[in-house]
Simulated assay, not measured.
Amino acid sequence: MTERRPFQRETEDRRRDDLIAAALDLLAEGGPQAATVRAISARAGVTAGLIRHYFASKDALMRAAFGVFMQRMTAQAAAALQGAPNDPAMRLARFIVASVSAPVVDALAVGLWAGFLHETRRDPEMRAVHAASYLGFRDQLQALIADLPQRSTALDARRAAIACNSIIDGLWMEGSLLPEAFAAGEVIEIALISAGAVLGVDLWAAHETDRNMR
């Protein structure tokens, strides 16, 4: 019996993950009206009644899906820091570039985000998920900014992170929905130059130096 417990835990975690993945796929394909309990269970290969074993309600499943979706995008941006040089400006530039590039920049992702965001108006718990995901991304951005020699206080870094996050969010949205409105590499260049202007750092030059070092 002691050998079966880890397997059972892994199986339950896998089923829970499958339900979340099914919900996200259906939301991306057809919006909230497509993500019914019956459709989610069919896509995940389980009975509709089994959903209640993992989630107290469909709303609870949607909250979990929103959290996973947002954490995934933050993780995709943070993955760019793996193997990055030990240079604060280069590391920050890498994070910003990843945040406004594929796979983070994606039209389906914006559609999912907009659908979930609408739910935050009626569901305080969904709003809490949104707040946690926003702060999770902003905290990573703030930590990278705090490493720059130009940032003298925690308040400076926080306010700079809020400003830079706004730049990233706007370019992420428009770059995802209207990619044809931008020249190749233009979203990245605008993001780095704009964030660099806020911070007083030449992030474009740091990005170019980093690229030439690879």
Rank of each mutant, 00 (worst) to 15 (best):
A44P: 05
V129F: 03
D202V: 01
E10H: 00
H53W: 11
A107N: 07
S57G: 08
F182A: 02
A21L: 10
S166Y: 10
M213C: 07
M73A: 06
R52H: 15
V105E: 00
S99M: 04
I145G: 06
R214L: 12
G196M: 03
A205L: 10
V110M: 13
L50N: 10
A98T: 01
I162E: 13
A65R: 02
D169H: 13
P149G: 09
E125S: 15
M62R: 05
A78M: 03
R4D: 13
K58L: 05
I162W: 09
I193L: 15
L27M: 10
R72W: 04
P88Q: 15
W204E: 07
R91E: 02
V37Q: 14
R14I: 08
G83N: 08
S41R: 03
I20A: 02
Q8N: 11
A93C: 08
H118T: 15
G136A: 06
V68F: 09
Y54P: 12
P103Y: 08
A161S: 04
V129D: 05
R159W: 15
R121A: 15
A28Y: 13
A157V: 09
G170D: 07
D13N: 14
L92F: 02
A114G: 09
V129C: 08
D210P: 02
Q140K: 13
D169Y: 10
T120C: 10
A23H: 02
V110E: 08
P103V: 03
A205C: 13
P88I: 11
A75L: 07
P85D: 13
P85S: 15
L112C: 07
V198L: 09
W172D: 01
P32T: 14
I193K: 13
R16K: 09
V198Q: 10
G111C: 08
A163C: 14
R38G: 14
M213E: 14
R159C: 12
A28Q: 10
A128E: 14
A35W: 00
M126L: 07
R122M: 14
R4I: 04
G67R: 05
L81G: 04
D18Y: 00
A128D: 15
P6E: 11
P149R: 12
A44G: 06
A132D: 08
A28L: 14
E208P: 02
A79F: 11
R211K: 01
G31N: 02
V104A: 03
I193F: 14
E119T: 11
R151F: 09
A163W: 15
R38M: 11
Q8F: 10
D123G: 05
A48C: 13
G136Y: 04
A102D: 05
A39E: 09
A128K: 15
L81P: 01
M70K: 06
A114Q: 12
A78G: 03
L19A: 06
F137V: 01
A75S: 12
L26Q: 02
A34I: 08
P88G: 01
F66C: 04
T47G: 15
N86F: 10
T47H: 13
T36W: 00
Q33H: 14
F95A: 00
A80V: 03
L27R: 06
Q82M: 01
A107D: 07
A109N: 11
G111E: 07
V110K: 08
A102T: 05
G111W: 01
F137C: 01
R72L: 05
R15G: 07
A109T: 09
T36Y: 00
A197T: 15
